[in-house]
Design a protein around this nucleic acid. Structure first.
Lengths: 125, 125
DNA sequence: CTAGAACCTCACATGGATGTCAGAGGCAAG
DNA sequence: CTTGCCTCTGACATCCATGTGAGGTTCTAG
């Protein structure tokens, strides 16, 4: 498929797909006229890249990890696997923090609702 | 306390504290010479602000929610409470996605470890 | 009093993914 | 062939929290 279709299938802009290629995250075969062509596999790859971006990884970091996805080999395993474990832990810690934040918001909303309720009751009483 | 102390207590840069004030997130009393002074309460406020930033809220959004923190009143409750619920849901959804990403990383690491193991075994056998 | 640290304002820089525009070429349908 | 849409490269714009530096004032310790 061409880049427009990949974009619409993944929900990622054409601009971003070209950027991913520039960053070495995504490969494409070029037609004789220079247009990029992709296989169906790239759809999953792009959504995975998006997932990693959403997890706060930078292009550079993603580029380091992706070879590990492509073909698990000894060459990748050593450095990249440790890097991945490190990013996993960072992410896990971040998740913990976000959950704490969500709890804080929940508490805040409860407080406000209670306050509103008490006001309403006072009015009625 | 003055701004430097608040900064070191919260781990937030002086620059950022001034920025928070500029965005209406943080108030300070000024000494006659114009220096900012804060109470101990502000420490918690700043860390909460940081927490919200980390949760992906913008200054503007945080500014909308903070009045709800300061004093739960009818005036805040209506709009801000709904906004808060909305942000809470967004955050919750994001957490879900991050957990999915963490799982993906775990799976990836497991695959790589297994592959490495099988290679090692093959070598030995 | 003085040196140095902390503070003030103003303003410009940065990073990183993405938006957007310009100018040109490619490709399918009428 | 023409019309319209897609794609190409290249470059500049944007957002936004934060960094950084200049030039000046204030506070504190010796």
């Amino acid at each position: 498929m061409r880049i427009g279709e990949l974009a619409s299938r993944t929900g990622v802009s054409v601009r971003s797909l070209r950027y991913y290629e520039e960053q070495g995250l995504l490969a494409s075969t070029r037609s004789s006229s220079g247009q990029r062509h992709y296989t169906d596999d790239e759809v999953g790859r792009v959504t995975f890249i998006q997932r990693l971006y959403a997890a706060g990884l930078s292009s550079r970091t993603i580029a380091e990890l992706l070879p590990c996805v492509d073909s698990p080999s000894m060459a990748n395993s050593d450095a990249a696997l440790e890097r991945m474990a490190q990013e996993r832990d960072r992410l896990s810690q971040h998740i913990t923090e976000l959950i704490r934040t969500r709890d804080a918001l929940d508490g805040l909303m409860a407080t406000n609702r209670a306050h509103r309720e008490s006001l309403r009751t006072a009015m009625a009483g």
